[in-house]
């Protein structure tokens, strides 16, 4: 009976751990997505600035 209780506890713990792991993976993916998006925004900003400078120079 004791073994039984232990087994049951192990099963539950494993399931609980696995959803934690999943959540951790999501965080990792979100992190790189955020980095990527910042990269794109900066590129956009940079491009905008370049355009502005170009326009100013042309004026």
């Amino acid at each position: 009976y004791l073994e039984d209780v232990k087994l049951q506890a192990r099963e539950q713990l494993k399931a609980a751990e696995s959803r934690y792991e999943a959540q951790k993976r999501i965080t990792q993916v979100f992190e790189s997505e955020i980095l990527d998006l910042y990269g794109r925004l900066e590129k956009d900003d940079l491009l905008k600035k370049l355009e502005e400078e170009k326009t100013e120079a042309a004026e």
Binding site: D4, L7, Q8, E11, Q12, A15, A16, S18, R19
Partner: peptide, 14 residues
């Protein structure tokens, strides 16, 4: 899980 008692909780985790 092997224990019927844990089914509901485990499936909630899943």
């Amino acid at each position: 899980p092997l224990h019927h008692e844990s089914h509901a909780q485990m499936m909630a985790y899943r």
